[in-house]
Amino acid sequence: MSLLERLNNDMKQAMKSKEKDKLSVIRMVKASMQNEAIKLGVKELSDDQELTVLTRELKQRKDSLHEFDKAGREDLVEKLRTEISIVEVYMPKQLSEEEVSEIVKQTILEAGAKSKADMGKVMAAIMPKVKGKADGSLVNKFVQQHLS
């Protein structure tokens, strides 16, 4: 079942069970996917493109969560935590820190990186491997650790 089909089914279910938060988030994600398809001039997004949109939606919410938390807006923080948990359901299984560390070590060896000057080259090689499965800041942290 494609992601769009899953979103449609979950949207119907959310309507039936009157889950307003879930319905709202699913509609926002679907709208983002449709906008991306229009922007790219395609009828349907590929799995990779869908993952890109989902990742972007999740990142926007996490960034907003951080800002609202700093501002002490607990009402908005709770709402965003709920939205994040709903979006995360559609994301692929996340890699553990150990798995990310192993991928980083392997990629550093493959790229022949020696110092922090090679960080851009290593990050460019790693990110496609962990797309949607690991947070970029976590990958960045491990790359810095292993290159120092």
Rank of each mutant, 00 (worst) to 15 (best):
V89K: 15
V89T: 13
V89E: 11
V89W: 12
V89N: 12
P92W: 04
P92N: 00
P92F: 05
P92T: 00
P92I: 00
K93F: 05
K93P: 05
K93N: 15
Q94W: 13
L95D: 00
L95P: 05
L95M: 07
S96F: 04
S96N: 07
S96Q: 07
S96T: 11
S96K: 06
E97T: 10
E98C: 09
E98L: 09
E99P: 05
V100H: 05
V100N: 01
V100R: 00
S101D: 13
S101H: 14
S101G: 10
S101P: 10
E102T: 15
E102M: 11
E102H: 14
I103Q: 04
I103D: 03
I103K: 06
K105G: 07
Q106D: 15
I108V: 07
I108N: 00
I108L: 08
L109Y: 12
E110K: 12
E110Y: 05
E110Q: 14
G112F: 12
G112R: 00
A113H: 08
A113Y: 09
A113N: 01
S115W: 03
S115P: 06
K116R: 13
K116Q: 14
A117W: 07
D118A: 08
M119S: 10
G120H: 06
G120I: 02
G120E: 04
G120D: 05
